[in-house]
Amino acid sequence: MTTQPIELRHTFDEKVYGKRLDLALSEAFEDFSRSRIQDWVKQGFVKVNDEVIKSNKHKMAGFELVEINAEVEVAGDWKPQAIDLDIVYEDEDLLVVNKPAGLVVHPGAGNQDGTMVNALLHHAPQLSNLPRAGIIHRLDKDTTGLLVVAKTIGAHTNLVEQLQNRAFTREYDAIVNRVMVSGGTVDAPIGRHPTKRTAMAVVADGRRAITHYRVAEKFLDHTHLKLRLETGRTHQIRVHMGYLKFPIVGDPLYSGRYRVPTKITPELKVALDSFKRQALHASKLGLKHPSTGEYIEWKVQMPSDMQHLRDELVANRDHFEGQED
């Protein structure tokens, strides 16, 4: 795997006072793991107020300017593959993809090909010269919706900085179990689950994670939510909804034991039983264009399987509420 230089900058506020350098950086640069950031610090790639700091235990005072000049792996060894992509926007700087369920974003253990990266390299071969083939943020394999991909180093640097500064608009649709009375905000740290290797959890020593949510529609035993990410932790919405005891329908990791509603039509039971992925869709994405600075926003409808599930939930509600009249 070849590497590509990358430049990151962030100006902190007073809230980082007393924090370790590596923790502050991992919260600011959300798309990079804490272990990678720790390595960058040890290798002397990190400057705080123009001074190289090589200790991850360095305490932050607040209002520092941090600059990282490091190298990241690029997609030189990944193979292009002719896989269809639903591209909703493209220009010389970026493209926006509507990802389907079942498509893995990055090659990895057990998924060396057939991924979005392989498809992107076939569509735009120059992406092999960019970190992660230009992909700025991720979606889980079975989460659908919008992803932005940078096509140049300049656009990549700009978009990563926007993401770090929480300047992206990222909104999701989700269908959750149980009826939620009203919306709110979850501000609960997320880290690796203490016993389940593949899962995340709300843990005291996790990274800060903030999810805003509101009720879009109520059904008899489910709720359609609109959610907005302020941070972007692994499995964040799925973990936070499970933490609130409103797990996402079909979620294989965080939904717990499925409870069949008392009022349910045969059609809804089939729809729920056959929904084998998390009912989560990235429906809106907004950002400032890296070249023009103009704010641009894209929206996509829920995929057909989620729309069918929602329609059956509506029909189920109408059926049983009609019986009460």
Rank of each mutant, 00 (worst) to 15 (best):
I135F: 01
R138M: 10
L139N: 04
K141E: 06
K141P: 00
T143K: 01
T143V: 12
G145C: 08
L146I: 14
L146C: 11
V149C: 10
I153Y: 11
I153S: 13
G154I: 08
G154N: 15
T157N: 15
E161F: 00
Q164N: 15
R166H: 15
A167S: 12
D173V: 14
D173T: 15
N177C: 02
N177G: 03
N177T: 10
R178A: 03
R178P: 00
V179N: 01
V181C: 06
G183Y: 05
V186E: 02
V186A: 12
V186L: 12
R192D: 01
K196M: 06
K196F: 07
K196W: 03
K196Q: 08
T198Q: 15
M200I: 02
M200K: 11
A204E: 03
A204Q: 04
D205W: 08
D205H: 13
R207P: 02
R208C: 05
A209Y: 01
A209T: 04
T211Q: 05
T211I: 06
T211G: 05
A216E: 11
A216S: 13
K218S: 10
L220D: 09
D221Y: 02
D221M: 01
H222L: 06
T223K: 07
H224T: 08
L225N: 08
K226E: 05
K226M: 03
K226S: 01
K226P: 00
L227W: 00
L227H: 05
L227C: 14
E230C: 09
R233A: 06
H235C: 11
H240C: 09
M241C: 12
M241D: 11
G242T: 09
